[in-house]
Structures are given as structure tokens and as C-alpha cells.
Design a protein around this nucleic acid. Structure first.
Lengths: 183, 183
DNA sequence: TATAACATGTAACTAGTTACATGATTGG
DNA sequence: CCAATCATGTAACTAGTTACATGTTATA
């Protein structure tokens, strides 16, 4: 599926594997991420499949930049993927919940410490959504008003992130409270 | 990580790969799942690593049941895993958000249809949490009061699921509303 | 009559992670 | 002087999915 994330970004403009990593880290990171090495190898396969083409851009004292451009075939693959309905729920793997599920014989204090640590992490994350992510989207939408339908969607995913973190923190607070009282 | 899910269940009683699949599907499915084939191959590796041992149980007209029992080494591996803090946030891959992120050029109606379909799926899921999951936990906790610390944790993960689905539905409703009005 | 439940697994594949290798430039 | 940024990639690995293979018994 990473290929569709990459195609999505290449629809805006040609980019290198390195650029794509930066872009993903700044934008889709909270619902789609990839390591640099996976991006490089996926781009290679995508070129073999005719979804993108690469052109080397020579540089001094650096490896050439390898700039990937989406092809017509890539564009239509992307559009048909976007049209396809998502008919199943995703049940992503959540390490913390797995650990908690089997923590019946762990001391109260250790569990509370574990959950408080998570609470801090989620608090940091919600702040990022409210500041950095929000600022970035506002900046693009005021600089490029023609992208308003795109930024609308970016904002929708940002709102999801914010709601998710809020929900997670509320659940942690509730659970920590219950453990302290009842466990 | 699947190994720890399997070890967790084997702490209660010896089980076959087939049993473990049934158990996971009924309990941890919303935060940890695996295919039957992955469970079989993971158990094999776990036996090679000394975390479990298997004993064949002959049956008539059926393949032998291969019953796995957790070893002392498996028990201590599980306990030390449970003690380890989770220090990073997980950012699981979410296909729907990825698709939505790149849906700026898709017709309004197609997006709304996509999101309404999701809404139905999440509504079904929240109902499962409120009925089946809840009933199962209540049943175990009244039949086996000695497992009350375990069922407390199961219930905590169930509440997470319920809150997650509630949040997801609220976000979908908000987003559908905004698309209908502003997009 | 067919399909679900029981019960095992292998093989081939895709996806993703970790570690390694190279090497210049810029900023603290 | 050290770390970060720029820029590419390969190799070995772990994790997970899909498809195949086998065969009985109970239920609808």
C-alpha cells in the first residue's frame, strides 16, 4: 500500500525518495509511515511496474538526485484506488493494549507507571496536532488557495488525530483512576 | 510480537494452534490478530527457542492435536516482556485516512458514500463491544472470581474499543457533515 | 448436497525493519 | 570536533498474507 502513498505525493510534483520520506514524516506520519530503505525499494518496484519513471539529476560532491515522476499509468492506478471502497474495519496491532490485557499479575504501581508514561506521550502528540500540523495546513491553504479541496482533506485527517489522542488520554485517565481505586 | 500474545494465553492452560486462533479471535481480535498459518509457524519457532513444548494428542479420524505447554523459560520471558515500558507511540497504518488524505479531487458523493460505509462498520463494531465482549467478560468474572485481576484488564481493553469506536463515529459524522456543507 | 467445524501444515509471496556502507557540507 | 543534513542504496532479517493440500463429521 505504500505505493499509493508515494503516488499520492508524486501527483503534486516529481520528488526523490529522500524528499518523499521528509514529506511523509511531516504529513501522513500518524496514519502512514515508512523507513527510508523501504521507500527506495518500493520506488524501484514501482518503476518496474511503470507507475513512475526516474531521471537522474547530477550534483556536485553528492550522489545524483534520482527524481521520480508519476506516469499516466500511475495516475490512473491512483485514481482507481481512490475510488475503491474500504469494506473492512482495520484492527491495527496495539502493543500497549496487548500488554495490558495480560497484566493481571503485574503490580499495581508498575501498571500505573506504564500508563502514565503513555499519557505523557499522547499529551505531546495532541500538542503537535494542535500546533505544527495545524500551522502547516493553514500555511498551505493560504499560500495555495487552489489546493483548498486537498487541504480540506488534510485537515480532516488532522482532526482525526486530535480526537484520537483526546480519546486515548481520557481512557488512560479513567483506567489509571480505576486501577488506583479498585485494583 | 505474536509470540507474546500466544505465551499470554498459554499461561492459562495448554492449547493447540487451532485453539489459540479461536481464543484470539474472541478476545484480543481488536488489538491483536493473526492468521492460522502464522500461528502455526510462530509456535514452531517458539518451540525451537524453548518457550513452549508440544505433545501430540492422538485422535481418531483426525490429525493429532498438537498441544503446546508454556515452559519456565517461556513464563519468565513473558513476565519480563510485561515489565518493559512501552516508550514510543504507535502510529498504525490506516488505509481509510490515507485514502481520504489524497481524495481532494474525488467527487463529493463518492467520498460521502465511502465514509457512510465506514460509519456502518463502526456502528456494528461498537455493538459487539457492548454485547458479546461485555457478556464474555462478565461470564468469566462471575464463573472464575479468582481471575478478577485478569478480567479487570480485559475490561479495560474492551472499554478502549468502545471509546475508540464512539470517537471514530463522531469524527465520521462531523466530517460527513462538513463535506456536505462546505466541499 | 454443500458448508462449516475440526485439525494439521507448507510454499511462495509481500511488507516492513535493522544494520551496514559511502561521503561531503553546514552549524553549533 | 561532533552531529545533523543531504543523498544513495544493499543485504539480511522478521512479520504477516495468500494460496494450496488433506480428510472426517456434524449440521442445515
Amino acid at each position: 500500500m505504500l505505493r499509493f502513498a508515494l503516488l499520492g505525493f508524486l501527483q503534486y510534483e516529481p520528488k526523490t525518495g529522500y524528499d518523499l520520506k521528509q514529506t511523509m514524516d511531516k504529513s501522513t506520519n500518524h496514519f502512514w509511515h515508512a523507513k527510508q530503505s523501504q521507500i527506495y525499494s518500493t520506488l524501484k518496484k514501482m518503476e518496474a511496474d511503470g507507475l513512475v519513471v526516474s531521471h537522474p539529476e547530477p550534483q556536485e560532491n553528492r550522489p545524483d538526485r534520482k527524481v521520480y515522476t508519476i506516469t499516466d499509468s500511475g495516475k490512473s492506478a491512483m485514481q482507481s484506488w481512490l475510488q475503491q471502497p474500504v469494506t473492512k474495519l482495520e484492527t491495527p496491532k496495539q502493543l500497549l493494549l496487548l500488554k495490558l490485557f495480560f497484566s493481571g499479575n503485574i503490580q499495581k504501581e508498575a501498571i500505573v507507571t506504564q500508563l502514565r508514561l503513555q499519557r505523557n506521550l499522547h499529551e505531546q502528540q495532541i500538542n503537535l496536532y494542535k500546533t505544527e500540523s495545524s500551522d502547516f495546513i493553514n500555511q498551505v491553504s493560504s499560500s495555495f488557495p487552489e489546493l483548498n479541496r486537498d487541504t480540506f482533506m488534510w485537515e480532516a485527517t488532522r482532526r482525526f488525530g486530535e480526537r484520537f489522542e483526546r480519546m486515548y488520554m481520557d481512557w488512560l485517565d479513567e483506567t489509571i483512576g480505576m486501577i488506583e481505586k479498585e485494583f
